[in-house]
Nucleic acid binder design. Sequence first.
DNA 1: TAAATTTGACCTCC
DNA 2: GGAGGTCAAATTTA
Length: 264
Amino acid sequence: MDRKMSRDGDGSETVMDAMRRQQELLMQLRVLVLPLLHGVHDTSADIAVQLFDDVIGCNITVASKLEGCLLMSTGRPVVELADDKSLVRKSTPAAASCCDRTEQQQEKPNSAAQKRRRNDKRSRSLVTHVPHYDGYQWRKYGQKNINGRQHPRNYYRCAYYRERNCLATKTTEQQEPTNDDTSTIMAGDETAKYTVVYYGDHTCKDHSISMGQPPQVATSMDLQNREIMAQTSTDVQEPEPDLDLPALLEVLDSSPIDWDNWKI
DNA sequence: TAAATTTGACCTCC
DNA sequence: GGAGGTCAAATTTA
C-alpha cells in the first residue's frame, strides 16, 4: 500500500478515492438488493442485510483508520468521504464529533446547539431511483428549496431519533435532468434519479454499522422497517410496488467502475 | 386521536 | 447577508 500511496506525490487521494468508491458502490448495491429481498425467507434476508451493514461498516472503519494514518504521515487532511462537498464542511477545531454534538443536544435541545452543521466525514452519498429503499425507517423533518435547484431537498432523520436517540439522518434531492433524461424525467417520474446523502450511523440498531455483533435484533428491525417504508412512503419518491429491475440497475450506470483505481 | 408531514421561522456558518 | 440545516406549530392522514 505504501508503494501505491507514494504514487502521484503522495497517492493518498487515490487510495481514499478507492475507499470512497467502494463505499458508494456498496450503498448502491444495498439499495439494489434490499427491495428484491422483500418477501424472501426472513433468515436469508436477515443475513443479507447484516452482511451489507457489516461490509459497509468495515469499509468505513478502514477508511477512518487510513485517513488517520495519512493525517499523521502527510500532516494534512485528506479529502472528505462524502461526495457532496457542499454538504460536508471541513472539520475545524471547534467542530465537535457527531457523538459530542449528541450530548450537547441532549442537554440543551432548544439552545444554540440545535443547529448542527455537517462535519461528519462518514457521510456517504448515492444516486438511486428508489431513495426510500435503504432498509431503515425515516421521518421527514424538513424541506428546503436549494438555491438554483429545480427540486427541493428533503431532510429525514431516523424514525427512532427520540425513542432510541438515533442520530442517523439523510437528505434526498431529485437530480436535475441531463440532456439525455429530459425527454423521460418529470417531477415524480419513477425514473427520476435522486441523490441521497446519509449522515451518521444508526444507533437505533444494537450493533449499528459495526462488526462482529449478533444480527438478530437489528436485521429483523430492518426488514420490518423496509416493509413499513414500502407501505407508508408519502413523499414524491413513492417506491414502486413492483420494482423495475432495469431502472434499479441504471443506478449503477450513473457511476461506472473505474477498475484502474481499484488496483490498490 | 395519535402519528406523520408540511412549512414558515429561526439559527449557524461562510 | 445569503444559504443551508433544524425546530416546532399547524395541518393532514390513517
